[in-house]
Design a protein around this nucleic acid. Structure first.
Length: 357
DNA sequence: GAGTCGTGGAG
DNA sequence: TCTCCAAGACT
């Protein structure tokens, strides 16, 4: 990809046909009912690496509970995480609230329309910045996501590896030269919508494509080969034993995860890293580490949970304790009803069938 | 640049 | 069951 790639490319025709198609074929989505920068912002964060159909109910509930930046800024982080429960990538929720608080404190509650100010907010990267500026503020800024790279790689017949961060920057540069200045919102959303509905990763429907006439990949017969994308390396397996510890009151011990890293500030049942500890020392290790004496019971089952870069192999064990409370503030004995108030990642929602007894 | 950060849908 | 991947950001 060089600077001449748009040489002899009919940018104006491409813009018009793309936008015309988008205007008549766009899906009716909740965040398309508004131009409120805050609501656009929330939708864009939720949509990161997440499919539209998954986001819709989360967006509705989230906006109903936090209709303005002030509502979200004043909320308890645990409640925000509860709203995010099951959506994944929980740092998105923590960063969003942190950034919203900055908007309230430093920008009088107004989402910045200045690229620099907006891009400096936590969790707002190059894509989200461009999406908010173009959709909410009608600014001709690029919003390059996976759809845009796939569509443009095909349209321009470019075989660059779209997994390389550097290539994304090149596409942003190209979009700056292609974007329709009179309707940047429809241009950006139009490419993404095209990627979602027509120019799909597999088996693109070129015969129904509104910009087929401009597509060099199609003309070259390369639409199935593009885009080029290097593969991610496979996940590493880790083994844990999950302890479902019940005390005399029928309450279970849960713990809050660390405030950094994987599933930060989410809650879970205690997990023993068996690769390091070993089965024989488990009870002793646990009492030393948690300050809670346990009597281990039978294995209830095995679970597998796959993350982007890790695979958890989990053994579920029932256990009992004589303790009724914990000295550690991140640990708590809770009743079955109270469990519903805590944000649990899906990995630990899977435990619920084992604790009905 | 490569690793970290979730989950569920689709083929 | 396996693979890819879906409106990415941060370190």
């Amino acid at each position: 990809m060089n600077n001449q790639i748009l040489q002899n490319f009919d940018v104006n025709g491409f813009q018009k046909d793309l936008i015309d198609w988008y205007q008549t074929n766009k899906r009716d989505l909740p965040w398309r009912q508004t131009q409120d920068p805050y609501k656009i912002w929330v939708s864009e964060i939720m949509l990161q690496q997440t499919q539209v159909d998954t986001v819709i109910p989360y967006f509705e509930h989230f906006i109903a509970k936090y209709p303005t930046v002030y509502d979200l800024a004043h909320a308890d982080q645990q409640d925000v995480l509860k709203m995010w429960e099951g959506l994944g990538y929980y740092s998105r929720a923590r960063n969003l609230q942190s950034a919203v608080r900055e908007v309230v404190n430093s920008y009088d509650g107004n989402v910045p329309d200045d690229p620099k100010a907006l891009g400096s907010l936590k969790g707002v990267g190059p894509y989200t910045k461009g999406a908010i500026l173009s959709i909410a503020y009608d600014q001709p800024q690029p919003a390059v996501d996976g759809n845009v790279m796939r569509v443009l790689a095909r349209v321009l017949n470019a075989d660059d590896d779209i997994a390389q961060p550097n290539v994304k920057k090149q596409f942003e540069h190209i979009v700056r030269a292609m974007i329709a200045s009179d309707d940047p919102s429809s241009f950006n959303q139009g490419i993404m919508e095209l990627g979602a509905l027509i120019c799909t990763p597999k088996e693109p429907m070129c015969l129904f494509c509104p910009v087929q006439a401009y597509c060099r990949g199609f003309q070259a017969g390369n639409e199935q080969q593009l885009p080029v994308k290097s593969k991610a390396k496979k996940q590493k397996e880790v083994h844990y034993t999950v302890l479902l510890i019940r005390n005399a009151d029928g309450k279970y011990l849960i713990e809050k995860r660390p405030d950094n890293g994987l599933l930060a500030n989410m809650w879970q049942f205690p997990m023993v890293p068996v690769d390091e500890i070993g089965k024989d020392h488990m009870a002793a290790w646990f009492e030393l580490e948690y300050g809670v004496p346990v009597t281990l019971g039978a294995v209830q089952g095995q679970l597998k949970h796959v993350f982007s870069h890790i695979i958890w192999q989990l053994a579920i064990i029932a256990a009992e304790t004589t303790a009724s409370q914990s000295a550690d503030g991140r640990q708590r004995f809770v009743s079955l009803e109270e469990l519903d108030d805590y944000p649990f990642p899906v990995s630990h929602q899977k435990m619920m069938p084992y604790i009905t007894s």
